[in-house]
Design a protein around this nucleic acid. Sequence first.
DNA 1: AAAACGTGGCC
DNA 2: TGGCCAAGTTT
Length: 370
Amino acid sequence: MRRRVRDTAGAQGRSGAAAAVLAWYDTHARDLPWRRPPDPTGQAPLPDPYRIWLSEIMLQQTTVAAVAAYFKAFTERWPTVEALAAADETEVTAAWAGLGYYSRARNLHACARMVANDYGGRFPESAAELKRLPGIGDYTSAAIAAIAFGEPAPVVDGNIERVVTRLFRIGEPLPGAKPIVRAKVAEMMPGERPGDFAQAMMDIGATICVPRRPACLLCPLRPDCEAETAGDQTAYPVKAAKKAKPKRRGAAYAAFDRSGQHIWLRRRVSKGMLGGMVEVPSSQWSSRSDGATGPNGAPFAANWRKIGEVEHGFTHFDLTLEVFAAVIDETPESDGWWAKLERLGAEGLPTLMRKAIDLAIAFQESQYRL
DNA sequence: AAAACGTGGCC
DNA sequence: TGGCCAAGTTT
């Protein structure tokens, strides 16, 4: 039996589609802080695995725009995995504050310590080994292996799911269709430049094959795209229906000292919502539908006054937090510490807490002006 | 396997 | 306004 003649696009791989993708990437790659420019030769040195790993963790379910500033801050403060491993976990979670999904920060730190202590400061180079490290799953292990180590690992993220389900009109709903998508990516994989191929596919998804109004006329995969031919691009990917978000209520208690210069903070337990993060004392809003509200839910007695409410949307519920404030004369006999208002930025407050505290401070300042 | 897990931007 | 979406992982 005769073999089909192999695509003769040279280093561009076994699939014409992959060749088109790489050629597109050579002139249209996004310029991102953690990225090396496209390498048409496939011979350039690979990027620093530490920076690739850090960027990939930050980018999980998070936009490029949100990540950029954090990536800069982290790499300036901790230029190597050893430096990050030497930091306290609380420093790392504080620096992560505002980026969300805080288990990532704890896993990031744990992973840095494993790489520093168990791997001599060098990341393992295969997707299979990388996947054993905390915070690194299917996507991230493949991405690091491909981008930082040149392994032809099939990378599948949300962008690539969209591109590939359209390309092949895959009608199975996600996430069940993920193995099909991964198999298609593996089939498309070029013989060279696996890292550039992965990044190119993600860039196509992020800039051309977008959820609404995809710019198919600009797409290097247009000639191959079944959905474009059928004209039903936006019908893909098919996703399982989402559940309704419940509404929850809770309360936060902002205690100021007599000087008005300090607020009482404490650290949340490491599991669950905002795990390990700093908060103004609050009720059990994270674990019940009607978190105890009112002045009686406070961790210590004071002349609590309700000063307002803040709204905050989480992934799986919407929260209304009643905010109470009081001035107290004694340091509470409960876990926590006085934080200087001018230095709240260094405390690493998650956004929900930032909202509650901003409201409390505004109220406090309005009282002093009277 | 389904649910938990943040945040901000867009239309 | 509210739902959708963004380089997912863990349990």
